[in-house]
Amino acid sequence: MKLMALGLGYSATAALRRLAPKEAIGTTRSAAKAAALAQLADMRHFDGSREAAEALRPALAGVTHVLVSIAPAEGQDGGDRVLPVLGEALAGENSLVSVAYLSTVGVYGDHGGAWVDETSDCRPKSARSVARVKAENEWLAFGERTGVAVSVLRLSGIYGPGRNALVNLADGSARRLIKPGQVFNRIHVEDIAAAVERAFATGASGLFNITDDEPAPPQDVVAYAAELMGVPPPPEQDFETAELSPMARSFYGENKRVANGRSKSVLGLAYAYPNYRAAFARMWAEGSWR
């Protein structure tokens, strides 16, 4: 495997550590981040510009797998940032067999708490989710045009080491916002890494929800984490009157339960962290939450 990880962030880094490919190239926009990840991959600068793409082209030679974890461009001409500048070069690499594109369950929008799967309508409300739908379609079209397997992995709320309710309780930033009927799905970063591994191993194409088995009210997760830590949970706050950033408030404007059956039946994915209780109990016992 020669892997190119475009956008080596939190999730893609976990995937790269799990895959441990023979050869790995990673991209970032940050020089500091590139230095920090230099032992994991041959780090290159890529910001979506044509100049950066030209500099990156020689590294594509012989690439077999591509992992894309770069947010799409928003606005009137929004869509994927990679394909306009690297699509032709990728299509010309006969060695390329599989692409995994990390997307979000935010593309479904609001379904009033109903269950959704990969056949459900996308009703994106935010500009970022509208752009995600466009980017997904562009990558799927790339797969159809080139014959390369393209799996679009729709991720729910990501957590893991350093990013979870235990950390928030420890640093005093945890909140218990109450919005009746509101639920969210979640996904541990190691299950994302496993999903990428299975997508590459199976050569699967299409849409896959990568999410836990149990959508749950967010305040329940905080309360359970506090119970594990043996500390009092933060007081309940009414969502309607709470001070929130526009982005944080927008997340609560979408309510759905996301099914993950296709990831199990097609990818053969066995979730190590199937619900928040199993995940937080394990992280707390292992000390892997920090």
Rank of each mutant, 00 (worst) to 15 (best):
W139C: 01
N260I: 03
K125V: 15
K125D: 15
E138D: 13
V116Q: 07
A242P: 12
R175M: 10
D212R: 02
V99N: 03
G7A: 05
A199P: 07
G253W: 10
M229K: 11
F208V: 11
A114C: 07
S95I: 01
E286I: 08
H65V: 05
L19C: 07
N275F: 08
R257G: 04
A15P: 01
L37A: 12
T211E: 03
S49G: 15
T28M: 06
E23V: 12
F200C: 10
L140M: 09
G261W: 15
R57Y: 06
M1P: 08
L19Y: 08
V258N: 08
V66G: 03
G62T: 05
D117F: 02
A14N: 01
V221G: 06
H111T: 00
L177M: 02
A248C: 13
S288R: 05
P84I: 03
L269S: 07
A59S: 14
E118H: 04
H45C: 13
H188K: 10
V183L: 08
G230W: 15
V231H: 13
S103M: 05
M247T: 14
A199C: 14
V150D: 01
L16P: 03
L244P: 10
L269Y: 02
V105S: 08
W139K: 01
R163Y: 06
G230P: 12
Y159A: 02
D47A: 13
N209Y: 08
A195P: 04
S95T: 08
A36Y: 04
L3D: 00
V107N: 00
G112I: 00
M247S: 12
L153W: 04
A272C: 13
A59G: 09
E93G: 06
R29F: 09
Y159P: 07
L166T: 07
A52M: 09
S265W: 08
P180H: 09
V85I: 03
D238S: 15
R17I: 03
Y108H: 01
E51Y: 12
A35Y: 12
F46N: 07
T13N: 10
K256A: 05
A174T: 07
R18H: 08
V99I: 05
P274T: 13
V221L: 14
A141K: 12
A20G: 11
E93C: 02
T119V: 11
R132T: 09
G181L: 03
A15R: 05
P232E: 12
V68A: 05
L267R: 00
V167G: 08
G143Y: 02
V99A: 00
E51R: 15
E144G: 13
V258Q: 06
V266P: 03
A174H: 04
V183G: 00
G160F: 01
V258H: 08
A199I: 07
L90A: 00
R18E: 00
N94P: 15
P215R: 11
